[in-house]
Write a protein that binds this DNA or RNA. Structure first.
Lengths: 337, 337
DNA sequence: TGATAGGGTGTGAGCGATCACAAGCATTAA
DNA sequence: TTAATGCTTGTGATCGCTCACACCCTATCA
């Protein structure tokens, strides 16, 4: 044990020797090639068992020029969206790939390019970039090599395969729900405008309003944090005509709710609110939050699918759009008047 | 471009040829060995630049028998704790290692052993197991090979290096805070008893109570979810003598708060509550939640440190315990009577 | 009965790096 | 002047696997 440096356990040649066959035959058995006599196969299998042989992923990667590792680039954040996305991806890939994660502090061009390059150097089987920021747009244009790559939550202009949620449709769902309840107008507390998600949600909100023939009220910009929602809430509570708000995520909605409680404004009677994300705890806000849900597992599945397509055939650059769904709870109701 | 299968970009020999030196000299330059003439070094560097050469991590791993990848095994969960832990680890490792993540559906023995083995086969530089479940205890005993491994949030009996939060101390902090406010007794809504975290927190809670000379009331067991907190809250609201609760995490605390609102019990006047985790939104609960905070970044840093120690010297099996801190907000106050 | 097909197996050469060793050369000490 | 020292560089083997190819053997067909 341990005469060879670094390596633990037996190599393919050890198995071959024990089974009395060539290393190539062992390789065939391991890789389930046809054309191996059953009897030989069993002998090899027995040897593998006896030695407790496990093929070296590293050596295989070197020989084939392709590993079973998927590189995921995401950004420095414990936000619900990116976290869930990562989780969904992992679930989808579980059996076939290992997932390597790089978390960037900021998604600016150079950092992103560097992270992607690094994965390419390591000859990963594919790369997933979770790039909800506008700044990520350009960085991916000049990517070297022919590595399968998929953007999640990014912008379609990059010319790469893309899986994205229909943010705009989600916002429209929220806004129209509020409108259908009888509200004259719907206010919006958005995320930072550097996020594509924010932009999409603002668009959907405005479009729904315009379609209904009402002029969008001034936009209140938040930063996804409950604190920014709280600040927005303090504003909204002082605007009598604001009877309905669509918050770009649940945590900002929580901040708004908090502000309303403090200022003794009743919800949903005096202010109706709809969130976005459906975080697990949203159901237990007071009032229980009506919100828009995204199926992150499905997004992960689609991303993987797109990756696989690129592994098989060289060129296809598809786009998948996931549709969000409205989850109706108690925080939105008809206006009181 | 792309005559060789799988490989993108130039290899070390290409650089050597262009620079007019041997591949070994290029290797020396790349690895910053001393004893390379400055002039040669510059020539090699220029060639590297010109070809845009990046060394292959895979090939290096094969040759050295050690990669720069750290394997992390965690469990199927988007819970705040495990997620933050992973994040903290990543931050700590960012520059020196790549992080590969395996998320298990359940942390039972076989699954865990398999995941760890898989990393060993891939010759990772080290393994981190985030194992807050009791079931993980035994699985790690019979681990093959000499791979640096660290348990996070696991049980000390495994005989491996361990980084853990002092759950018990955290629970004690919460309980004593409530007691010091003047409450006669403190109730507890725990996590599932399969979690070591739960067990530790229950222990700390009981110990603090006994030290104060009071008999612990019956334990209410939850499952970390807001829903289970809500159910516990409906119970607690009907028990007049229950004036103070310690919830084993913030999300269950949220469920309790929700139940109190519904049953028109005022907080903190009629019921004081302390949570655990300090999730980002806890500050914006109504009332703002007093809770116990864990420094996950520090945990990640310590885990990495322990890993590094094992890489250098073969045997050390240290244990690091992280101390939690109490974050005082509005949800706990003196009892009203 | 001989040519053909194709199942089953082995041989040797890479993949792209590192490592151990040897050798050339200049500098220094004897 | 010669031997010894040590910086600088190169050679070849090696890590564990896959790939391309060649080979043998046994059916099948003409």
């Amino acid at each position: 044990m341990g005469e060879r440096p670094g390596r633990i356990g037996p190599a393919i040649t050890d198995v071959a020797r024990l089974a009395g066959v060539s290393h190539q035959t062992v390789s065939r058995v391991v890789n389930q090639h046809p054309h191996v006599r059953e009897q030989t196969r069993l002998r090899v299998l027995a040897a593998i068992e006896e030695l407790d042989y496990h093929p070296s992923g590293v050596a295989r990667a070197l020989a084939t020029g392709r590993s079973t590792v998927l590189g995921v680039v995401t950004q420095n954040s414990t936000l619900f969206g990116p976290t869930s996305l990562l989780f969904g991806l992992e679930q989808a890939a579980a059996l076939d790939f290992d997932i390597a994660v790089t978390t960037l502090r900021s998604l600016d061009g150079p950092a992103l390019t560097r992270a992607v390059r690094r994965y390419i150097d390591q000859q990963v089987a594919g790369i997933v970039v979770i790039a909800p920021l506008v700044t990520a747009r350009d960085a991916l244009a000049e990517l070297p090599g022919r590595v399968p790559i998929v953007l999640v939550d990014g912008s379609p202009e990059a010319g790469k395969a893309l899986v994205t949620a229909d943010q705009s449709a989600g916002a429209r769902l929220a806004t129209e729900h509020l409108l259908s309840l009888g509200h004259r107008n719907v206010w919006h507390v958005s995320g930072p405008k550097t996020w594509l998600d924010s932009i999409g949600r603002v668009d959907g909100w405005q479009a729904a309003l315009r379609d209904a023939g009402v002029e969008p009220p001034p936009l209140i910009e938040g930063d996804w944090s409950p604190a920014s929602g709280y600040r927005a809430g303090q504003l909204l509570a002082r605007i009598p005509e604001a009877t309905a708000v669509f918050a770009a995520n649940d945590h900002m909605a929580l901040g708004i709710i908090r502000a309303m409680h403090e200022l003794n404004r009743r919800m949903p009677e005096q202010l109706s609110i709809v969130g976005f994300d459906d975080v697990p705890e949203a159901e237990y806000f007071t009032p229980a939050l009506t919100t828009v849900r995204l199926d992150f597992t499905e997004i992960g599945r689609q991303a993987l699918h797109l990756l696989r397509e690129q592994m098989d055939t060289p060129d296809p650059v598809g786009t998948r759009v996931i549709q969000p769904a409205l989850v109706i709870r108690d925080s939105a109701a008809a206006p009181q008047s």
